[in-house]
């Protein structure tokens, strides 16, 4: 079933924010269950069928544990355990919203949407660089590990945890020395691609609200209002 709906990144952002609000306000148990089911439907529509089911299973397991094992709260162990369970149940919707936001959205779509939201260019460009550079950074770190092993300075990664300051020096200093070159290269790339242009940018991503986006937003707002009232 290859059906997949393209949501506007702004819808995704709104869902993340609303989920946070719901996480802060104390909503009733019924609404919480409905909201989690709603989020997993969104995940499935977005193309992550497996994840949507996994999150639902985790949620029901958490509720089950809470109702059976920790139905009596008297000693300190059950206090700690039930605190962690309830906390985990509360955090789960936020994680689901984050998965919904991060997966199946191209970075160009994010840039186009953030520009439509009138975010300053001084914030968008560093954010794009973070997204673009972070995978490279992880690769570089792996290469540094290899080089350190090759030269016999460390034997395994746990040695770095035992001597954190030495590890910091060995890992961070090469990265920071290389940043200067990388900054020059990336800034010329940015310049050539015309991202510094002052005029409004165009994008190949249309990013318009469709009826499904409106529907999702209206339903989640209604759920939140219902959660406050009931």
């Amino acid at each position: 079933m290859p059906t997949r709906v393209n949501f506007d990144p702004r819808t995704k952002l709104i869902i993340v924010l609303l989920t946070t609000l719901i996480f802060i306000l104390n909503i009733s148990f019924m609404i919480e269950i409905i909201f989690v089911i709603f989020l997993s439907c969104l995940l499935m529509l977005n193309g992550n069928h497996k994840l949507g089911v996994i999150y639902l299973v985790i949620f029901s397991l958490l509720i089950l544990c809470n109702l059976t094992i920790f139905s009596e709260i008297n000693d300190s162990w059950s206090i700690l355990g039930s605190f962690l369970l309830i906390g985990g149940r509360r955090i789960l919707p936020t994680l689901m919203a984050a998965t919904f936001a991060m997966t199946n959205t191209h970075i160009g779509e994010w840039v186009a949407s953030l520009q439509k939201l009138k975010l300053p260019f001084n914030l968008i460009l560093p954010l794009v660089i973070v997204f673009r550079y972070f995978p490279t950074l992880l690769n570089n770190t792996k290469a540094i590990f290899k080089a350190l092993k090759f030269r016999g300075l460390i034997t395994n990664k746990f040695e770095l945890i035992l001597h954190p300051i030495k590890g910091l020096e060995y890992i961070l200093v090469p990265i920071l020395v290389s940043t200067d070159t990388i900054a020059t290269e990336l800034s010329s790339v940015v310049f050539i691609r015309g991202m510094g242009n002052q005029m409004p940018h165009t994008s190949i991503y249309a990013n318009r609200f469709q009826w499904l986006d409106w529907l999702v937003i209206v339903v989640s707002v209604l759920l939140m209002i219902g959660g406050i009232v009931i």
Partner: peptide, 23 residues
């Protein structure tokens, strides 16, 4: 001037990524 501004912004992005790695 614009080029140097872009370079500053790119450097900020890269240092943010390094900071994020530490986090």
């Amino acid at each position: 001037q614009q080029q140097s501004k872009i370079k500053e912004l790119v450097s900020i992005g890269i240092y943010t990524a390094v900071y994020f790695l530490v986090v």
